[in-house]
Simulated scan of single mutants.
Amino acid sequence: MLIVDKKSFNIGLGLLISFLVVLALMLSPVIDGKTILIYSEDLFNSLTKGSTYQIPAVEKSAEKFAGTSFSVSVKAADAAEGEQIAKVYGSAGADVKVDSNKVDISGDLGKISLAALKDADALFNGRVDELKGAYGMDGKEVIYCWYGGFKALNKQYKLDAKSSEMSFTGNVMSKALEPAYNFEGIKPVKVREKMGVTGFLLTFYVIYTVWFGFAVMYLFEGMGITATAAKKKLEA
């Protein structure tokens, strides 16, 4: 290996070695038995969950659909799942009819939505025993059943060009059921509660990325490898 600029090469080598030392530290369990990377991932997941809590707002919008009747058919994966869907919707007061893996559901959109949102709130906030006691099912299974029905409803409202109902059922799925299911088991945290450590980590990740870039740049300079723009040829 030919070194044409020893000073630049040594700077690059020093930056690369220090970069790897910090990386080794980040991969060590130094924060409550967790690596810095895992701690950061958990923190950002908690911050994301804390910023997605919109269930109360969706509950408020459900009030105007009280008395709005609906009827929809849901196709489950199998007969067992069909029975689960029927149990969840039936417990909320809907009329259900099961035929193998097909479930026909009818009821009051406002009333059913509030029941679904209540269960989503329970899972989102870690009250899994509440759902287990009510349905004898895992919390995520309950929300999955709710989601199947609302997905079918949303699709039907789209076909029927009922924009208000379509928008509302879409919000129930995206702002309540999906966050509750996807963030199950994660403790929600507000950004203001972790402002200091969040700011530090974001700043550190930017600096750490630039750190590696400069290490490579100086190493290449030390070996005489530089990027130059191609010269244009003059045409006669």
Rank of each mutant, 00 (worst) to 15 (best):
A57S: 13
A57N: 12
V58H: 10
V58D: 09
E59S: 12
K60E: 15
K60F: 15
S61L: 14
A62H: 06
A62W: 04
E63M: 14
E63Y: 12
K64Y: 03
K64L: 04
F65R: 06
F65S: 04
G67I: 01
T68W: 07
S73G: 08
V74S: 02
V74L: 01
K75S: 10
D78R: 05
A79D: 08
A80K: 12
A80Y: 10
E83R: 08
E83N: 07
I85E: 00
A86F: 03
K87T: 06
S91Y: 13
A92D: 11
D95N: 15
K97T: 12
K97I: 10
V98K: 09
S100N: 14
S100G: 12
K102S: 13
K102P: 09
D104K: 05
S106I: 05
G107Y: 04
G107F: 05
G107N: 02
G110A: 05
G110V: 03
K111F: 09
K111R: 11
I112H: 06
S113M: 02
L114Q: 09
A115L: 03
A116C: 03
K118A: 03
A122T: 01
N125L: 08
N125D: 01
G126D: 02
G126R: 03
R127E: 06
R127C: 02
V128H: 06
V128D: 07
D129N: 07
L131H: 00
K132T: 10
K132G: 09
G139D: 00
E141L: 09
V142N: 00
I143K: 01
C145W: 02
C145T: 03
W146R: 03
Y147S: 12
G149Y: 04
N154V: 07
N154K: 10
N154E: 11
Y157L: 03
K158I: 11
A161R: 15
A161E: 15
K162G: 12
K162E: 14
S163L: 15
S163F: 14
S163T: 14
S163Y: 14
E165M: 09
F168C: 08
G170I: 08
G170T: 06
V172H: 06
V172K: 07
M173W: 12
K175Y: 15
L177C: 06
N182H: 12
F183R: 08
F183I: 10
F183V: 09
G185T: 06
V189E: 13
V189Q: 14
K190C: 12
K190L: 15
V191E: 15
K194F: 15
K194T: 11
G196L: 13
V197D: 11
G199I: 11
F200M: 14
F200L: 15
L202E: 14
